[in-house]
Write a protein that binds this DNA or RNA. Sequence first.
DNA 1: CTATAAGCGAGACGGTACGTCGCGTCTTAAT
DNA 2: ATTAAGACGCGACGTACCGTCTCGCTTATAG
Lengths: 208, 208, 208, 208
Amino acid sequence: MCSRTSPRTRVGRPRSAEADAAILAATRDALVDLGWSKLTMGDVATRAGVAKTTLYRRWAGKNELVVDAVAVLFDELELPDRGSLSADIEGVVLQFAALLERPETKTALMAVVAESTRDAPLRERIRASIVERQKHLVLQGRRRAQERGELPDGDGGPAGGTDDLIFDVIAGAVVHRALVSAEPVDSAWVQRFTALLLGGLAAAAAQD
Amino acid sequence: MCSRTSPRTRVGRPRSAEADAAILAATRDALVDLGWSKLTMGDVATRAGVAKTTLYRRWAGKNELVVDAVAVLFDELELPDRGSLSADIEGVVLQFAALLERPETKTALMAVVAESTRDAPLRERIRASIVERQKHLVLQGRRRAQERGELPDGDGGPAGGTDDLIFDVIAGAVVHRALVSAEPVDSAWVQRFTALLLGGLAAAAAQD
Amino acid sequence: MCSRTSPRTRVGRPRSAEADAAILAATRDALVDLGWSKLTMGDVATRAGVAKTTLYRRWAGKNELVVDAVAVLFDELELPDRGSLSADIEGVVLQFAALLERPETKTALMAVVAESTRDAPLRERIRASIVERQKHLVLQGRRRAQERGELPDGDGGPAGGTDDLIFDVIAGAVVHRALVSAEPVDSAWVQRFTALLLGGLAAAAAQD
Amino acid sequence: MCSRTSPRTRVGRPRSAEADAAILAATRDALVDLGWSKLTMGDVATRAGVAKTTLYRRWAGKNELVVDAVAVLFDELELPDRGSLSADIEGVVLQFAALLERPETKTALMAVVAESTRDAPLRERIRASIVERQKHLVLQGRRRAQERGELPDGDGGPAGGTDDLIFDVIAGAVVHRALVSAEPVDSAWVQRFTALLLGGLAAAAAQD
DNA sequence: CTATAAGCGAGACGGTACGTCGCGTCTTAAT
DNA sequence: ATTAAGACGCGACGTACCGTCTCGCTTATAG
């Protein structure tokens, strides 16, 4: 009697790992060249040197494919340690803004979020592979500031609500500035935004 | 020789005004039933009891049609006078959140913004018919607060930049909360958000 | 009150008659070049300078299209008047054989009949547009022979059964010789076949 | 150094003989259930409990497979000895008709013949495994009739042509009746057909 | 009162992309 | 070497929308 760790011995030809990478890269290329709405599955397949069926064997459709293709870009984001909370925030916001300015992100991000309003599994996929990654930065920043003594202990509210609030404010403001107002997220704007945010946080802390 | 003061007296059968209204209403219905991505021009035409050619005579495509159909909903937004800046902000944010929760808005708004990242005329159309309408509320709120003495005179910064900042923060945070985080924008959240914002504004004013 | 002959006033753009002709001609071309099994709807559409949808708007599929494309070739068949029943039969059989030797007919005819064994509407379509056309020649030939006194009056059997029998024998033998045995239907074979057939008919007439 | 009389002693795992039988049976089942055009190699493999590669190792494609699957059915045909040529013919024609009425034969026979018009190897395969088997019955019947004195000696014509003619007439007429005219090949029809044929043969013999 | 012009519903048209299916080949591990 | 399993590149399928184009008809203004 043998013990099997995997549910069943894998049988048949395994899926090509190269194909996965080629497809995701081709998807990002196509986003740059064509934008979300003109991107087609057939074109991505051609660019990746792969058959259309291979795409559909791995992803349910354009939405899922694009989420995965864009998600890896968010791995680049990390919280720099610049010595103060305000400098840390400014650093990460500029990174986030740079990401949003990239043509593949700019055209894809709002589109998949728009689709996700009517597609719960897609919404969950976005949350898991993109939103959580960003939210983690907020937690990390708050903890580091608490270690420095810049912020009082605790998460600042019931049910971790302040972290969520901060996250929506930061991500929302930057996205709105970049994509809706279509104005540059430069360091001048980021400094004024950070000052506003930290001022608000300090006032809220004082009030308690 | 004829004198024509108007660009030209239109000759031929005039366009039906009823058709316009019916088409926009049908578009909103279709958005509710189908969502942005499944909405088709042919279906809108059928719902409106109109030929497809009639749609294309008036709008260049789906994007433009949907922007117009959704824009009128933003007429409902107005700044209530509740006696204090914080109460005014809470009121208008709740209105805005209610609008975002409507299925036609929820599915359409981010989608057309996403499209607009690669379509300058569309971006301008959205700015003129939706964004400006919202931004006006910020100006109005700031002036009213200044009349009350809650805020110092001036627009609070160089090149009117603070109004823009405030606008991106408010609109961005609410949209992000509602559509990305997919959490309810209820009055508890709005109060905490408003407190944060006003705290930040006060700190910024004190700093100058 | 007006009387309308057509069920309803035709409304909308009428179907292009040129397209019909171009499609049927393209289908015959494709049969010659590719044969039945390699013929594709897309290729026919391209050859005809027409969209694939235009094909599907008029025909349910490849089978129906090919039947119509081939059927017109059977219009060429006619019973020559060569003065005697045997000469008439030899003439029409040679015509039929020549038709079966044409590449478009050779590859298509058995294929659609094979399909028709599991598709009653297709079988009816073939019967109406091809089989009846051929059967008519048998009737015509029998009547002409009766006028000449070469055959006794009557159709030679109950329920017109002899006409049917003769038809199956002639058409079946020629098709089998040409397509299954794949031997030439030349005038030597036709003379021997006709002699056999007329001998059999005479014997049958004598027996009654 | 080894001596090898056979082409080569096969090395490695030998092919499964059971698989061959299972595949041919599965092919006939699939023909009954789906018909020629909807039969697929993958489905046959599944029905046979066999991998697709096993099919392709033995047959070049669908055509060859189906010919082999149907060919064995023709082994059932044999010339009964009913004491007279006419009775023998009637017997064998009824057998042949019964075979053509079977769903697997009905849907497959004309289809592979149609394919064979553009595929010489396939045509040869059909000739060898199906057509010759039938033609043999004609020879056998003619010889038996000659032994009985019902027919004069010789094959009745130059280059054995009469056997071929008789074969095309019998097989062609029955196939046409069954598949094109789609009328039953019952004993009444067979008697009239046989009378016609034998009358023709007698006339031809008298003429010489 | 007629001519001209534009709007309109209907629906056919040339296209493009879709997502699926079957083909025949290949790569695994197991026999 | 053969087998079952199943991924792969390929090509055709039949459908859905796109945005444009005829049609016959209606509804205006201009002469």
